[in-house]
């Protein structure tokens, strides 16, 4: 519903993408906090918040499996758009300047910038490792010892990488780039936003 807002809008994420993204986000956050409760005794109070240790042990794997499934949907939708091109590599080389808002000399981005693309591949790789090791930890009785020994290390290792990357993603999208969160909730951005943050993509959609 546009209401009284008659200023121009560009659709950034369609409804299917938004639903898939928030399914991923909800499952990720549940898996993250329930997982953190078992990461350290000092975080065990999170298990109390989530229904107790036994509940966490029962539901963390299910939340994780749902996260992997939802990410699978996003993967199918976005994988091709997430391939890094030459401009993206140049962008990464001057990524520190992007972080300091010194945008001159930072190559223009397409629909996703190089940072978002790297996040996508880090989360995809992390989710694969978490899924495989997670299945081993889910059914320890059915797994050979060597696999379990690998899984108890691989699972938290992948979780650390995945959580580290998500801290950056959540911070960037909620606090650093005004308008980014609305693009993922309501689905649209202003043309000026598109031009400033995703110049190549803006010309594509505006030139149509």
């Amino acid at each position: 519903m546009r209401g009284t807002d008659l200023k121009p809008r560009i659709e950034r994420f369609n409804a299917a993408e938004r639903v898939a993204h928030w399914m991923v986000a909800i499952c990720f956050l549940y898996s993250a906090f329930s997982g953190l409760s078992l990461w350290s005794h000092r975080f065990y109070w999170m298990a109390a918040v989530l229904g107790g240790g036994e509940t966490v042990r029962a539901w963390h794997p299910i939340g994780g499996a749902m996260f992997a499934a939802a990410l699978g949907v996003l993967f199918v939708k976005w994988a091709r758009q997430m391939v890094l091109d030459r401009d993206d590599l140049a962008w990464l080389a001057v990524g520190h300047r992007y972080a300091m808002h010194e945008e001159e000399g930072v190559p223009e981005s397409g629909r996703f910038n190089a940072g978002q693309k790297v996040l996508f591949w880090v989360q995809t790789a992390g989710a694969l490792m978490l899924l495989v090791s997670g299945v081993v930890l889910w059914f320890p009785q059915a797994m050979p010892r060597a696999l379990r020994l690998a899984a108890v290390f691989v699972h938290p290792l992948a979780a650390v990488v995945s959580l580290g990357a998500i801290i950056v993603h959540i911070y960037m999208s909620t606090l650093v780039v005004p308008g980014a969160l609305r693009a993922m909730t309501k689905g649209w951005v202003r043309p000026g936003w598109a031009k400033a943050h995703h110049g190549k993509w803006y010309r594509e959609v505006a030139g149509k």
Binding site: K7, A99, Y171, L175, R190, G192, K195
Partner: peptide
């Protein structure tokens, strides 16, 4: 270190560098 360092880094970045400029009404 990554969990707490990441959150701390975000806070410091926000206070020192802040958000990118908005282009709300373009």
């Amino acid at each position: 270190t990554i969990f707490f360092g990441g959150i701390l880094a975000a806070i410091v970045h926000y206070l020192k560098v802040g958000p990118k400029e908005a282009h709300e009404d373009d």
